[in-house]
Amino acid sequence: MADIEKADNGHHHDRYATAATAGPAAAPTHLRTIANPAPLGLFSFASTTLMLSLFNVNVKGVTNANIVVGMAIACGGGAQLLAGMWEFACGNTFGATAFSSYGAFWISYALIFIPGANIGVSYTGDVADQEHNAVGVFLMVWFIVTFIFFIASLRSTMALVALFFFLDITFLLLMIGEFMNNVSIHKAGGGFGILTAFIAYYAGASALITHDNSFVILPSGNMPKRRVSPA
């Protein structure tokens, strides 16, 4: 993600070069380099986050969120993990680490709901009352990870700073909701998750909609860079 929009470092757009032949009739050669994987990662993250967050606020009375499992594995997990791997190829360490990490988050989250994984179903009998605290610890870990990403994004773009800021609040509220077994706090986390998802959609759209393919450009808000004083 980081500048996730900036992750191309000038190498993701299609380029044109004159063919290495003499004479005015030389035809241009279309050279294609690695495309920008950031929109894929951001849209995958946003879509899965939005779906789960809507269920967290009980939209349309849905209280069983198991339908998000497929989305978490294929979209939030698989597609985002692929985006992270391609960010490594693009030389973007921040984007590669963030996309890969949250891809792994969604896959690990989905495993809790899969009976064959024996994770969620293991909290029965004498340990049934430990499930909320266990999920709270799981969310606490991702609250810490997200805070680190937030600090690392402070000189990227306003869109990314806002994304990690509100995502961290989302994890914090969901974590507290689990530890306290409080439905209202959990719903508040879902509300912040919805906001986070739309910020991620905007960040992904600003990376996808460029001068190359659209007349409409979405500003991502570059953060001030550190000034280097002359020696």
Results as ranks from 00 to 15, higher is better:
residue 79 A to L: 15
residue 138 F to G: 05
residue 42 L to R: 00
residue 56 N to R: 06
residue 36 N to I: 13
residue 76 G to N: 06
residue 44 S to Q: 13
residue 59 V to K: 04
residue 124 T to D: 14
residue 44 S to H: 08
residue 51 M to W: 11
residue 97 T to M: 03
residue 48 T to E: 11
residue 150 F to E: 05
residue 140 M to D: 06
residue 85 M to Y: 01
residue 135 V to S: 11
residue 135 V to M: 14
residue 104 A to T: 14
residue 72 A to I: 00
residue 62 V to L: 13
residue 98 A to H: 00
residue 132 H to G: 04
residue 39 P to W: 04
residue 49 T to E: 11
residue 95 G to N: 05
residue 89 A to F: 08
residue 133 N to V: 12
residue 116 G to Y: 00
residue 134 A to M: 11
residue 85 M to V: 06
residue 125 G to K: 05
residue 60 K to H: 02
residue 68 V to H: 08
residue 46 A to T: 05
residue 138 F to R: 09
residue 122 S to W: 01
residue 88 F to I: 10
residue 144 I to R: 01
residue 124 T to H: 12
residue 123 Y to K: 04
residue 90 C to M: 14
residue 83 A to D: 08
residue 99 F to L: 03
residue 117 A to C: 09
residue 96 A to P: 03
residue 53 S to W: 00
residue 120 G to Y: 03
residue 145 V to S: 04
residue 30 H to A: 15
residue 58 N to Y: 12
residue 89 A to P: 07
residue 143 F to M: 13
residue 80 Q to K: 08
residue 100 S to F: 02
residue 93 T to L: 09
residue 70 G to P: 11
residue 145 V to C: 06
residue 53 S to C: 02
residue 101 S to A: 13
residue 68 V to C: 15
residue 108 S to A: 13
residue 57 V to Q: 02
residue 141 V to S: 12
residue 90 C to R: 15
residue 110 A to N: 07
residue 131 E to H: 13
residue 73 I to C: 10
residue 143 F to C: 14
residue 78 G to F: 06
residue 126 D to H: 12
residue 99 F to Y: 01
residue 105 F to L: 10
residue 55 F to V: 13
residue 105 F to I: 04
residue 31 L to D: 14
residue 70 G to K: 05
residue 72 A to N: 13
residue 84 G to R: 00
residue 103 G to C: 05
residue 83 A to V: 04
residue 69 V to W: 07
residue 110 A to V: 00
residue 81 L to T: 01
residue 72 A to G: 14
residue 105 F to D: 11
residue 154 L to D: 06
residue 95 G to M: 07
residue 38 A to D: 12
residue 44 S to E: 10
residue 98 A to I: 01
residue 140 M to R: 06
residue 75 C to T: 15
residue 143 F to W: 10
residue 133 N to M: 10
residue 155 R to S: 07
residue 103 G to I: 07
residue 66 N to L: 09
residue 145 V to Q: 03
residue 102 Y to K: 04
residue 84 G to F: 00
residue 123 Y to H: 08
residue 150 F to T: 13
residue 100 S to N: 02
residue 88 F to H: 04
residue 126 D to L: 14
residue 77 G to K: 01
residue 60 K to V: 09
residue 113 F to P: 12
residue 132 H to E: 09
residue 118 N to I: 03
residue 42 L to T: 05
residue 127 V to R: 10
residue 63 T to K: 12
residue 93 T to R: 12
